[in-house]
Write a protein that binds this DNA or RNA. Sequence first.
DNA 1: GCACTTATGTAAAACATAATACATAAGATT
DNA 2: AATCTTATGTATTATGTTTTACATAAGTGC
Lengths: 402, 402
Amino acid sequence: MGRHEQGHEGPTLDGAGGILSLIATGQASSRAELLQASGLSRVTVTQRLNALLSSGLVRETEETLPSGGRPTRVLAINAASGFLLVANIGETHIHLAAMDLTPAIIAQATLPFSVTSGPEATLQQVGDVFEALAAEAEKTHGFFLGISLSLPTPVDFKRGCVVGPSVLNGWDDFDIIGQLQTRFAVPVYVENDVNLMTICEHKRRFPTVDDMLFVKVGTGIGSGMIAGGRMFRGAQGAAGDIGHIQFLSDDAPLCRCGKFGCVEARAAGWAIARDLSARGFHAETARDVIDLVEQRKPEALMLLRAAGRTIGEVISDAVSIINPSLIVIGGTLARGGDFLLSGIRELVYQRCLPLATRDLSIVLSTAQEDSALFGAAYLLLEDIFAPLKVDRLLERFAARPL
Amino acid sequence: MGRHEQGHEGPTLDGAGGILSLIATGQASSRAELLQASGLSRVTVTQRLNALLSSGLVRETEETLPSGGRPTRVLAINAASGFLLVANIGETHIHLAAMDLTPAIIAQATLPFSVTSGPEATLQQVGDVFEALAAEAEKTHGFFLGISLSLPTPVDFKRGCVVGPSVLNGWDDFDIIGQLQTRFAVPVYVENDVNLMTICEHKRRFPTVDDMLFVKVGTGIGSGMIAGGRMFRGAQGAAGDIGHIQFLSDDAPLCRCGKFGCVEARAAGWAIARDLSARGFHAETARDVIDLVEQRKPEALMLLRAAGRTIGEVISDAVSIINPSLIVIGGTLARGGDFLLSGIRELVYQRCLPLATRDLSIVLSTAQEDSALFGAAYLLLEDIFAPLKVDRLLERFAARPL
DNA sequence: GCACTTATGTAAAACATAATACATAAGATT
DNA sequence: AATCTTATGTATTATGTTTTACATAAGTGC
């Protein structure tokens, strides 16, 4: 029996979830592949697909794939059938956007932000901008699917909270999902920015890699991991916190976390800026460091190379522990290219056993500034189109105002 | 339509896989729970369960669970309805056993072994003993379910091969699964011993922990990880190789891998034995070290404590990277108890951020000598009873000679 | 003992899916 | 243009599952 008794005309969306999920996740892009992938009969697939097509969620593209006989029609999620709201909360700005299901930006906005602002007021502001963006997006992309936030701190993904000491003072354990869901009755996701950059890099460039490590080398140092094809978060969402692994030595510098000899204190943007300042340059941020690198100042090059070796040291530990097949280096300092990369490669190949480095690639990220924003969108899309949850989406879609 | 056309009497096992899997994995132990967990109707569950009960694979126990009303009958896999063959190939001996589905040992045997034996001859020998064990087990536990091997080297689990340089000379890339499957037409699994000890520890003592690290401190040092509830193997099955993470210092000792300053060269059984020998004691193996520790020789205690701090150093790196909620210390040196543990705890709590250690437990393993053997059995059982594969098992079960 | 609760089984009807068979579509090959 | 191949749709029939309704079972608490 159908769950939707409102008396729609035409086929209902009942049971179409599996089909939708296969299309959305790229596991099947034609009717033939749907048959294969779902194991259902052609009759059933046809019926369910028709429901999805007439609902507008799925469309037939112009594209066809050769097959030896009649070419197969390519199916795709209709990117304009819905929209998401995403926000990247940075340390100085909040970047907000409405996105379609590609995901691509439909409309966007930027807010100034201070890390001392409390969560309540900030989320109120974010919500206000979201409402404006939603009003815009609704004109052309009717269905509001969900919200996804990027935060520059460790996040307990399941609970949707900032955890542990962080730059966001007063956000600890605040129920972000709760506040946004009382205002917007849609799924809400909150995740750490580095994890989202990892997701973005994985989805876009390396969708077939199952075990990768993404390292963000910017003002701070952090990392995210894909393990067995899925984001790996650890017990509290704190996995990948490589910035505060310590290497002790006589001259171990003081870290901003209060310990001595952390990787960050030796190789992060702020640490290199500190060392450059000590040598008479003007440098405060990772961007200042890269400016000097791009001017080919020998001191900056030397320090960046040294940072590469330090980061290589900690990455080689990570390689021994998690045995990835790919390491992607991103963040502002990655713009230093080989000046950073060579030191990393040197240490990893020197320190790790041949077995672990045999099939290991170490590459630079090509991601843009807003990769966390897109990562947030990918995360949301992946989750709402997941086989187990997609039925809920269809219920909401069927119940939407027309 | 049924896939089995042999004309069994009574209900067929068709589609009973999901039910069987739920019972076997402990996700449901009563009819009521099966209804809940499977989402099927009572009629269907009854029908499928009857098929499993009459096949003998599942049985009703005497036990009941209170429910407020009529108590629910507890269901269980009939441990005597089948058997496995497992073997733990160590550096000097091979321990082989036939096990029921508990898993518990039905019959066992031991073979001498040298690491210089090639794979072909060794597996021939193993196969011979397996045949004898199978003949024994078949008398009381009719159905032969599969084979699972433990090896003291890195293993590419998917391919079923030894990978990389290891103590097993000549085993590299040899198709172990292939050779055994031509002789025994059953599923064959091959896995590294530390990973199997990890599985055993997880299954028996901490089944609800999703993210744990098991560290084996014996003659060598290795580790296994459970991430998100599943064994984590990395890209090539080399994850958890913490023994050869390096800490450089002026007095960095030479490791048996050829590098300087590896954790193993500082803290493994062989390294402590080396240091004790240098001080005039007779010690070669981890067991010799523990003997001296149990005699409370100050030098042995001091070296074990120091080893604990070294291991704590590398574990703190692992904690920062993977953020587990539990660390279990096993292997021969774990018998040193707090003499080893205190140093580990000291370094982990000193080096890791409070967020990561807030809910972190560090405990000693209680596993016995043969935990790898049981781990091999758990691995096999988990896999053949996995939802996606259990149907194959039922096919074989239905086709068995009666 | 009796009412209450939850567990469990079963028959009949309603519903969903699959198998089969046939028909048409559309590009590739000849 | 005719033919081959594979894609795709649909009517029919067979099969499997769920729903519904009813009945029984086996504890607990009074």
